[in-house]
Design a binder for these strands. Structure first.
Lengths: 131, 131
DNA sequence: ACTGAGGGTGAGAACCGATTTCACTCCGTA
DNA sequence: TACGGAGTGAAATCGGTTCTCACCCTCAGT
């Protein structure tokens, strides 16, 4: 599954494995990834995990998501763009199937004279359990 | 202009004045707000500014915006919802006229069984100057 | 006026995630 | 073997945010 990325240092590969293991809805923080990575590679340091995430993000293999109102960023495997929902009650983060239409993005970029490379859509509110 | 909020402690009022002074495109960080507030009220402390922003956010008078990839949150007067654009080159933040259509939000909320209270849309890329 | 309670306030410490530093290891090549 | 560059772990550091705590100010009830 992670075979799409070549020539990765072993620890970075471990990080990638952990993120992909969690899947698109995983929403792992760097801390959580570190904990899981240590199960595979007990001597791995937090700094290495962090560097790995940065590298993998640059390579486009993982997405870094800054959820509005959340202290720490979460990571998940690169996948089709989608929005996120954060419950203000329990703090849970879930995926929503939404992306700003490509045509709209293009028109916005043109109108404001900018080049848009990425979008982040976050909704907040109450989930079913927290009513 | 800040007359819509009543019964505010004096320092919080100062904070509100600063934010509204900067206007919708101000995008001030808490630090910047503190600096400007001291021009009006030299003895005001940072903690007070921060508490004021929290209070004003609860009251709905100011918006707190967590820009993706930005270290600190920025604040601006409550206004019609709009998206933000952050240039990865110079770090500038600007407003874009976009909001997720209300009908779409409603449909998403219904489909996933959640109550959506707020949305945050952030684009990142390169501004005209940073090409 | 006096008094007690409660909110507001300033300074600085504490906190926490993210990032950097630094010395060390590993592995390839010459 | 000697060298150099990348990778690595532990710990220090950073920066924004939040908390603590002692003080002050206002105001209601006397």
């Amino acid at each position: 599954m992670s075979s799409t990325v070549q020539g990765l240092p072993p620890n970075y590969r471990t990080v990638l494995d952990v993120v992909e293991e969690a899947g698109p809805g995983g929403h792992l923080t760097a801390q959580e990834i570190w904990v899981r990575a240590r199960a595979l590679q007990p001597r791995i340091g937090f700094a290495t995990v962090h560097r790995g995430l940065i590298r993998l993000h640059e390579l486009g293999a993982v997405m870094k998501i800054d959820v509005s109102g959340e202290a720490s960023a979460v990571y998940e495997p690169a996948a089709s763009p989608h929005a996120h929902f954060r419950c203000t009650g329990c703090g849970a983060i879930s995926d929503l199937e939404y992306a700003v239409p490509a045509q709209t993005v293009r028109r916005l970029a043109e109108r404001h004279g900018v080049a848009i490379e990425r979008e982040a859509v976050t909704f907040t509110g109450r989930c079913a359990n927290c009513g």
